[in-house]
């Protein structure tokens, strides 16, 4: 009840949800019921299983002090990822596609309108609108999932081995992780999804955005095919 009231008040006072191309906050409040097992938002919200979501728009990923984030989420934060409409939308659609080993155990919301409604609701509780990165309405609600045709490409491991030589300047083929993550033995789909998230600049790291930016779908599939079995 209290949440519904707050939504009504917030909508009535600012009308913010309509102004920026996000969806319907009241519907979003209902979508949020599936998040409530772990997340709180609104007055008095605290971090429980997952971080509280007050002020999540404009917050750097993995930046709340009292939360035990996954190393993957911490890395996204230190690489410069900030939660805005685009990154939140991608994360809610498929959490692991954006943050490989996130502790958020959630399958994702595939329906773009539901996500847009949810974001409209969450945005009410980001209390400094000046910090909210504006997003084009058309940039929202897009499909962040990878086209099944791309996932179905059978990569050529021999080509992958050659292409992988570029990766191995930093990522060790032994799988050692010294400040740069291991990329060996990843399931093919995770690898492809992660590389496309860099290619679309949803994942923040500038070197990875640059490297992935010039790899085509076949080349990414080839790398995935090579690294999935690489064990030294």
């Amino acid at each position: 009840m209290r949440i519904a009231l707050t939504v009504a008040l917030a909508l009535g006072m600012s009308g913010v949800a309509q102004a920026d191309g996000l969806g319907d906050a009241e519907k979003g409040a209902k979508v949020f019921t599936q998040c409530k097992g772990c997340h709180q938002v609104g007055e008095g919200a605290e971090t429980r299983i997952g971080p509280h979501l007050n002020g999540v728009f404009g917050r750097a990923a993995g930046s709340l002090e009292d939360v035990r984030y996954s190393p993957s989420m911490k890395r996204m934060g230190s690489d410069g990822m900030v939660w805005d409409a685009a990154t939140l939308d991608a994360y809610i659609e498929n959490p692991r596609a954006l943050v490989s080993k996130t502790r958020m155990s959630f399958r994702g919301i595939k329906d773009a309108q539901e996500r847009s409604d949810l974001l409209a609701y969450l945005r009410i509780y980001s209390d400094n609108p000046a910090d909210i990165p504006e997003a084009e309405p058309t940039a929202l609600g897009t499909d962040h999932d990878i086209d099944p045709a791309i996932l179905a490409i059978q990569g050529d491991p021999e080509y992958g081995e050659y292409l992988a030589s570029e990766c191995k300047t930093c990522h060790q083929s032994s799988g050692a992780n010294d400040g740069i993550p291991s990329i060996t033995l990843w399931p093919t789909e995770d690898f492809v999804v992660a590389m496309h998230a860099y290619k679309r600049k949803l994942r923040p790291h500038p070197v990875m955005q640059m490297i992935s930016g010039r790899l085509n779908d076949e080349e990414i599939a080839a790398l995935a095919a090579y690294f999935k079995d690489l064990e030294e």
């Binding site: 191995k168 300047t169 930093c170 990522h171 060790q172 083929s173 032994s174 050692a176 992780n177 010294d178 400040g179 740069i180």
Partner: peptide
């Protein structure tokens, strides 16, 4: 530092 370990191994 990760790069140094990576390139010298490479």
């Amino acid at each position: 530092e990760g790069w140094y370990a990576g390139i010298t191994a490479d």
